[in-house]
Design a protein around this nucleic acid. Sequence first.
DNA 1: TGGACTAGCCTGTATATACAACTTACAGGT
DNA 2: ACCTGTAAGTTGTATATACAGGCTAGTCCA
Lengths: 255, 255
Amino acid sequence: MSNSDKPRYQQLKDLIITQISSGELGPNDRVPSENELVESMRVSRMTANRALRELTDEGYVERIAGRGTFVSDFRSRSHMLEVHNIADEIEQRGHRHTCDVLRNSRQHARGEIARALHVEQGTDVFHLLLVHFENGVPIQVEDRHVLAEFAPFCAQQDFAAVTPSAYLTSIAPLQEAEQIVRAQLPNAAVRTQLQMPEKEPCLVVMRRTWAHGRPVTFARLHHPGSRYELTGHYTPPGTTKSASEGVVQLEKLER
Amino acid sequence: MSNSDKPRYQQLKDLIITQISSGELGPNDRVPSENELVESMRVSRMTANRALRELTDEGYVERIAGRGTFVSDFRSRSHMLEVHNIADEIEQRGHRHTCDVLRNSRQHARGEIARALHVEQGTDVFHLLLVHFENGVPIQVEDRHVLAEFAPFCAQQDFAAVTPSAYLTSIAPLQEAEQIVRAQLPNAAVRTQLQMPEKEPCLVVMRRTWAHGRPVTFARLHHPGSRYELTGHYTPPGTTKSASEGVVQLEKLER
DNA sequence: TGGACTAGCCTGTATATACAACTTACAGGT
DNA sequence: ACCTGTAAGTTGTATATACAGGCTAGTCCA
């Protein structure tokens, strides 16, 4: 077993993370208490304590002295998702998100797609082409390839209702993401879809995402330069996050 | 004392962090071992262990079983710096970085600058205007305002030799940064400085950085869309970083 | 001279125990 | 009916102890 050579506190963490990402434990559900873990898992309380404490640091659970340990709700848990799901982003602004599905087809990966996904030429992938709207205004063209082996039921999905990002994260938790951001003039097709004037540039994000230890999806996201911007926020490790009221203002400020 | 009501492991962490950021402990210096802390600080070994372990998680120190605990060297500690200092970025690619200083003047903050830095209108700031070159090709126009109170000796600095980022981080560790990324057509002045053709867009980064708990500098960075791109990499908390060999390739791939 | 071995330090993990502070539920008294 | 006090369960912290395994320097032997 690869499991038994891991330290016990790590085994405990893995167990609980698995239960969370499988949905067995949902947001705000109660996680077994330290003493319950002592009994059921035959570990000392300090070991259970370390597992739960590290899960707290990593954002999976929240602990309240006197009450217990509870699975964090979505929002506070995954930065990844915030960044990924444009539908949530739009709704967080209080706006209406809609989506046109231009294409959802099974293909064979060629050239750069195969290389980006680390698979042989000809491997089955789904090719998705969507346009996302904020209050009816086009704001993103999503050109995405997904490993068919990873998400075999793409063809039956209604991506106008559930975005690809949301669907993919429901299949398996995403481990890692890499992205490149560019400023580029769009080609005619993209410009038409985004209803952009002649000389306006696009903010292009190319993003590759890992699950189960390998890249599973590769997306090219075009946004109209005048209607979209990326925001980022960094804090060095160990710093307590400052209240972000002052942070949000810059966006309005520079408009 | 506000110190004595904090838990002891936290007091230990604060002590060591203070020694690191004051320079008393430099990169690769040896941090007292657990047993030494047990004696000098009168705590149990588990408490010392927790302090050092959490400092490891937060990137301040590295621990090697059998040898000891050592202060992380710059590179592995602060992602912040990697992102910030374009000179290092260029030299990491094995290229030559040069820099023209177009302006270095003391001014009174007005309008959006004052708001971005959270200060009164008319507060003293330095205004820096630089162009950065990679192998002689212009790659960034840096338009930066710095709180004069934070960095009083800006006027005497030779920013062609030491970039503003590097200089500012040498004054005080940067705590927090916020940035906004846009695709925009440059105005004539910027386009000339960057030697860009007529219709090429810019990748514009606006970045605000905190130190001592308040914003101290605000920068507008223009890059030519055809010669510059931003890369980012995300891992959810608690994941062990994968070897990043596969990650780097996407950049070349998509060129 | 050179190689093997060992003692002593280090980190990493695990356990048992203890006390403080907080929350909830319940029993009892007014 | 309402309030109070208490008991049980929870997290948070701290200590003492133990063993395994990595690293280094120095000793000992051939």
